[in-house]
Amino acid sequence: MVNKNNVKIHVENLKKSFGKLDVLMDISNDIYEGEVVVIIGPSGSGKSTFLRCMNRLEDITDGKIIIDGYDISSKKININKVRENVGMVFQHFNLFNNLNVLENLMLAPVDLKKKTKQEAKESAIRMLEKVGVEDKVDYYPSQLSGGQKQRVAIARALCMEPDIMLFDEPTSALDPEMVAEVLQVMKQLAADGMTMVIVTHEIGFAREVADRVIFMDGGYIVEEGTPLEIFGNPKEQRTIDFLNKVL
């Protein structure tokens, strides 16, 4: 599945600070086509910030991020064009509350003229079937459960037909009984060959689905490797301490 000949996300000496607070110290990494990368780490380790730099929801303080050949750390790049190919799923779903499910899915493809209204509607319904909420097309976000919201949010991102999907703690705001239905959709997506970067606390999911696990702490990548290496035989003391707490 992983195509080592095609680097989708190239990160080079990335630094990020909020005012005087340094959040990302010096991060370098390559993420390949079709790869599923799970980022774990204690809160405040910078994992969400790292993810949000990948579509420049956070401005990059220093260093480089190159997505599909586009250097998004350069101010000259049209970031909106890059974002069309990088879907994002948020912890708090962030469905557009003023629009119903179908409108949520159709807004961006139609507004950005990627699709006609008819095409957008058809693909929206296809995506809703894929995530299993096709019966809720005319519901408003406030009428959905957390799990349904998150599945709609995934479908919304997929409607732009992105090459890369970023997930920022997609199950952290869900009731326990709804976590599985969202993870199931993500597993399917991984099986379809999507390039995915996932920040999560779901160790079981990481073990099962990830091609590579990155452990972050204090703004650095402390350790990375296959799930077997990281969970079975962690080398760094900080990784061991963290895993002892969460497993």
Binding site: N55, N80, K81, E84, M88, N94, F96, L107, A108, L112
Partner: peptide, 22 residues
């Protein structure tokens, strides 16, 4: 919620389109 703007921007909409549509 600033998340509304972020979600719209993450899909590729410009600041002003996100503002007016969402």
């Amino acid at each position: 919620d600033p998340g509304q703007m972020e979600a719209a921007r993450s899909l590729g909409l410009t600041y002003w389109r996100s503002m007016f549509r969402v």
